[in-house]
């Protein structure tokens, strides 16, 4: 149970944290990766909204 419940949330949380730290360590590509990683929470929400198809 806990694996399926917290699997994706843990992944999103780790990506968010990586994004937050990455931009602190330098500029350039690190910023780009940081933006991508910190987009994970928003992409997950966007995915949930499109996955909800009216039957």
């Amino acid at each position: 149970m806990s694996r399926s419940t917290f699997g994706l949330p843990t992944f999103i949380a780790l990506l968010s944290l990586a994004g937050l730290v990455l931009a602190l360590t330098g500029e350039g590509w690190r910023d780009g990766l940081s933006w991508a990683a910190l987009s994970a929470p928003l992409l997950a929400v966007a995915w949930a909204m499109t996955a909800r198809k009216p039957r």
Binding site: P9, I12, A13, L14, S16, L17, L20, L38, A40, P41, L42, A44, V45, A48
Partner: peptide, 13 residues
């Protein structure tokens, strides 16, 4: 629940 769990890490930081 969805917004809370997805933004959790950011909100905590």
């Amino acid at each position: 629940n969805l917004l809370g769990i997805t933004a959790l890490a950011w909100m905590t930081v």
